[in-house]
Amino acid sequence: MRVAPKVELTEEQRAQLTKLTRSGRTSVRQAQRANIILLASQGWDNKDIGRQVGLGRVAVARWRQRFIDLGLPGIERDLPRGAPPQKVDVAKLVELTTQSQPAAATHWSTRKMAAELGVSPSTVMRHWQAHGLKPHLARSFKVSRDPQFVQKLEDIVGLYMAPPEHALVLCCDEKSQVQALDRTQPGLPLKKGRAQTLTHDYKRHGTTTLFAALNVLDGQIISQCQQRHTHVEWLKFLKQIDKQTPPDKTLHLIADNYATHKHPKVQEWLHKHPRFHMHFTPTSASWLNMVERFFRDLTTERLRRGVFTSVRELEEAIEDYVRHHNECPKPFIWTKSAKDILQKVIRANSRLSSKQNETLH
Score class of each variant (00 low, 15 high):
P85K: 15
V94Y: 06
R51G: 12
L39A: 13
V307D: 12
K336I: 05
S353N: 10
E76N: 04
L238A: 08
V119I: 11
I75Y: 04
F294N: 08
T199Q: 09
L70A: 14
D173W: 09
F211D: 03
A115M: 08
L38V: 00
G43Q: 10
M161V: 07
F211K: 09
R305E: 14
I222Y: 11
G206T: 06
Q148Y: 09
F67W: 08
S176A: 13
L235G: 09
V178S: 04
W287Y: 10
P164E: 07
H271V: 02
A105N: 07
K265C: 01
A138C: 05
A34L: 04
T230W: 01
I75R: 03
L253N: 08
A40V: 12
F332Q: 11
R347N: 13
A34C: 02
W234E: 03
L298W: 07
H127I: 05
H325M: 09
F211N: 10
A167P: 01
G24F: 04
L170N: 01
E8G: 06
A104T: 13
R139A: 08
V124N: 03
P135S: 04
T230Y: 07
S109K: 06
A91C: 02
A34F: 03
K92N: 05
P121G: 10
R312V: 11
A114C: 09
L314T: 00
E316M: 13
I36S: 05
L168D: 06
S41V: 08
